[in-house]
Design a protein around this nucleic acid. Sequence first.
DNA 1: AATACAGACAACCGCATAATT
DNA 2: CAATTATGCGGTTGTCTGTAT
Length: 198
Amino acid sequence: MDKRLCNSQYAEVRKGPWTMEEDLILMNYIANHGEGVWNSLARSAGLKRTGKSCRLRWLNYLRPDVRRGNITPEEQLLIMELHAKWGNRWSKIAKHLPGRTDNEIKNYWRTRIQKHIKQAENMNRLSSNISEHNNDQQASTSQASTGPADTIETYSGNNNNIMATTFHQSTTFPTETNENIWSMEDLWSMQLLNDATN
DNA sequence: AATACAGACAACCGCATAATT
DNA sequence: CAATTATGCGGTTGTCTGTAT
């Protein structure tokens, strides 16, 4: 490829959050030409984005079968189960959760589950310290629980056995917060409108 | 009311691997 | 078969929003 061309043509590569307009262009283009060959797709569609960026946006957000909203308790359980089995193989895990993306699961793991594991480890350490200290007094149940509503009730102390972890209900599943983003229904209906006029 | 902080999520980056030339 | 390019994955960072002070 001609590097001089690259310099002039690709000097302005957009980064950061996608605009509604960009989303529409991408959706429209994929609806007409299909996905794949992302670099040339980005160019042909007239998007000042890298192919990588387009692919990511499509897979994680724009694809019609992406399921948005809260992770259900069943999904959470499945994630924990599969993570215990495979570790950080997010895309592999995502394949078992229809409509969920690897990115979403990864974020969910890092922001929610990992936090609880850390808390549990701390509590575990604390409790083992206490039991060491109170060597003779078995079953000293007066752990100095700092008691946030979302602390873990039980934990095996083993990262590979997170399944033993249970959460208070108040912890999990915040309500959906999509207000800052145009709804996918809007985008798709606009895309369809666009399509009809072409 | 202002602002500092934390949590959630979207997006980027670097690397490994697959596909193509 | 080597070099180049495209794709996919996982880690990390950036941005936005809600909450506490």
